[in-house]
Design a binder for these strands. Sequence first.
DNA 1: CCCCTCCATGATAGATACAACAGCGCCGAG
DNA 2: CTCGGCGCTGTTGTATCTATCATGGAGGGG
Lengths: 216, 216
Amino acid sequence: MRTSARPTGSAAQRAYDFAKWAILNAVYGAGDVITEGALANEIGVSRTPVREALLRLEVEGLVELHPKKGAVVTSFTQQEVEDVLEARVLVENFTAARSFANRATFLDALVQVHEDMGRRRREQDTAGFTECDRIFHELIVDGAGNAVLSAIYRTLRERQTLFTSVMVRGRGDRMDAAIAEHDRIIERLQADDVDAFAGVVNEHLVWSTNLARESR
Amino acid sequence: MRTSARPTGSAAQRAYDFAKWAILNAVYGAGDVITEGALANEIGVSRTPVREALLRLEVEGLVELHPKKGAVVTSFTQQEVEDVLEARVLVENFTAARSFANRATFLDALVQVHEDMGRRRREQDTAGFTECDRIFHELIVDGAGNAVLSAIYRTLRERQTLFTSVMVRGRGDRMDAAIAEHDRIIERLQADDVDAFAGVVNEHLVWSTNLARESR
DNA sequence: CCCCTCCATGATAGATACAACAGCGCCGAG
DNA sequence: CTCGGCGCTGTTGTATCTATCATGGAGGGG
């Protein structure tokens, strides 16, 4: 009768959400093969929606589909890592410069997230801290008002989390540094100098990508 | 024995290729609904590979999947058009500046495509002309050596063809102008001035996007 | 002892069957 | 004439079944 645990949303959506969560949280590591049947059993649906989920994830670059063999979680070469980071910096620098003009629309939210981020750091809530960092950057990117670039940015950032498993866990110094840089960003945003703002954003990105390289 | 008409490639690939071709060549216009059954009959496969094809096309932004209703060919608002163009210019300007250093690896091919493009223009082969233009730009973008940005560029350009149905057909003047600009690009590429090269590329992109805006 | 072939196994690719749902028109009541 | 409910139809969403193919190991021949 299935009285309980009837999940919400379509089976395909559940399959997609679960698979993506599992990959981004390193339940499946790079190089692991995911079989449709296994995922289907895990989630409790047939293989069809699982196929759909894996297909989406392939287009997003999170898995590679090998015909007749299976889906393997993407593993990155050094070159591919550099490509993703370069693309991310390109998009974020550009959108940041654009969003400066619209800063009134998101500055309040930015400050709020920033405060939340400090709280998480004090509470040693690494996952929450990382989440706040993601939102912080997305707010700026979205501020540019270009939905296409926003979507591209999100997939790039997701791919980045694939090869930087842990950036700040147990590294209070890194968290403090990130907060300090975000401080400067907000500061420049409240001032009236777009170039200075773009400068600190770019500095933060350089710092952040160097961290990502070290955290492979 | 199936002596004839055994198509090459997987059914899913055929479905994808056909649907994409049909959309990009305006067989299905913006706003048209594509039903899985119809496409399946058209291609001669079952609905399963068709679903897969439509899913990919959705992620690429060529169709929108409405649950229980069908797939409709994406129609763009003015804002979305601007977003796509802006993103394309961003990626292409950046990759062009990068590929200047590697120009030895693709300059021969570029010249060859350029000559072919002139031939097509003389022969009034509009489709071939457009194809050459696409390859010309892709050569420069790929020259940067960033596979991620190359892939992004391709999807952006495909989306652009969706809202610029016809840019040069019957417009010999536009073809001549494009060729002249490509001439300048090759010229600057053979010289040793990256800034001048980046300059003419950007000018060409401005001209090209203005054309795209006019050709909606 | 090594390598090559064949086959058992398990996976995906594709087809088909079925269920659920949205849209639309018909029909009747007011 | 208008409005609201009801069922019909067509479409997608999901499950399941079959065929095909990749893979790895066993076994025989060189």
